[in-house]
Amino acid sequence: MKQYEVGKRFLNSGYQINCRGRLINLEEPLVMGIINVTPDSFYEKSRVQALDSVLHRAEQIQEEGGVILDVGAYSSRPGADYISEEEEMSRLWPVLKAIRESWPDVLISLDTFRGRIAEKAVGDYGVDMINDISAGTLDETMFETIGKLNVPYILMHIQGTPDDMQKNPHYNDVTGEVILFLAKKVDQLRELGVSDIIIDPGFGFGKTIDHNYQLLRDLEQFKMFETPLLVGVSRKSMIYRFLGGNPEDALNGTSVLNTLALSQGANILRVHDVKEAVECVKLVSKTLK
């Protein structure tokens, strides 16, 4: 397995992603701010539905140093309500239109597992990348769609579906099995001509607390893919169920885990709290120089 020297790994990964013809440099990690256009996401304060609230949130993310806006209209928390493709579209289109009109050059990631929605979002609203929690397992058209769209694709591991993923997650070797799953998916995407793949181990998606912390300990192993690495642990149950409390109490724990992830080579942090994550990046960067 390829070995990485810590400071070099963090500061000089050399990764770039092509977003609508712009090369985005990941030598220093970027922060992705979450915009949940949903009534039922697990962290109540992250929910924004009124258009003016969405635009305020998008502006806040950018002012605090976030580079990517991750917009989602389908909650993936365990037991979340099913919504139809039409409902997801009705939530998304006004939001994407307003964001793109307000900030023509901002990087927009769309959190969806539906290929038809991904295609329309990229074609009609200038979405820059697709963030798929299912790695193509919830819509068999997704990989082929991404191959045609030529946009970066966030490939996330999940065991099961949002409905059942936390009922009894089981692995003999969680890190090895997640890596094998992702490796097979990467091969499929490469065969379809997808050049910009971002790996996400899927913290909280079909994993126990112990599974999540094992993945975090082994995070450096995911650099074997030689692709950018995204980590999303923001205010998740692996923090507040271990320490006690609820998502509202999990900001400090989030910062601690983000710092650990950065020290092991994370290139993108997906977060609710942008200012704090940007500070993590600055401090870890300063430490490793």
Rank of each mutant, 00 (worst) to 15 (best):
E5F: 12
N12T: 15
S13A: 13
Q16G: 14
C19F: 01
R20T: 08
N25Y: 00
E27Y: 08
E28C: 14
P29T: 12
L30V: 06
V31T: 07
G33Y: 06
V37Q: 09
P39D: 09
D40H: 06
D40L: 01
Y43R: 01
K45F: 09
R47H: 04
V48Y: 01
L51K: 01
R57Q: 15
G65S: 08
G65L: 08
G66R: 09
D70Y: 09
G72F: 00
Y74M: 07
P78G: 08
P78K: 05
G79V: 04
A80T: 12
A80L: 13
Y82L: 08
Y82P: 01
I83L: 05
S84Y: 00
E87G: 04
M89E: 09
M89D: 06
L92G: 00
P94C: 02
K97L: 12
A98Y: 04
A98L: 05
A98R: 05
I108M: 09
D111S: 11
G115K: 01
G115D: 07
I117K: 02
E119K: 15
E119C: 11
G123E: 13
D124W: 10
Y125F: 15
G126F: 04
M129Y: 12
I130A: 05
I130N: 02
N131E: 10
D132I: 08
I133V: 15
L138S: 13
L138P: 11
T141K: 15
M142V: 11
K148P: 01
N150E: 14
V151A: 02
M156H: 07
H157K: 11
Q159C: 08
D164M: 04
P169F: 04
H170S: 15
H170F: 14
Y171P: 13
D173C: 14
V174H: 01
F181R: 08
F181C: 02
A183V: 10
K185E: 09
Q188V: 10
E191R: 12
E191P: 11
D196V: 13
I198A: 03
I199G: 09
D200F: 02
P201V: 03
G204A: 00
F205E: 01
G206N: 03
N212M: 05
Q214P: 12
L215F: 14
T227W: 12
G232M: 06
V233W: 06
R235Y: 02
I239K: 05
Y240H: 07
R241H: 11
P247W: 00
P247R: 07
D249E: 15
A250L: 04
L251D: 05
T254S: 07
V256D: 03
N258M: 05
N258P: 05
T259K: 10
A261N: 07
L262E: 05
A266I: 06
N267A: 03
I268M: 03
I268R: 02
R270H: 04
V271R: 02
H272M: 00
V274Q: 06
E279G: 12
V281S: 02
V284H: 08
V284S: 00
S285K: 15
K289L: 15
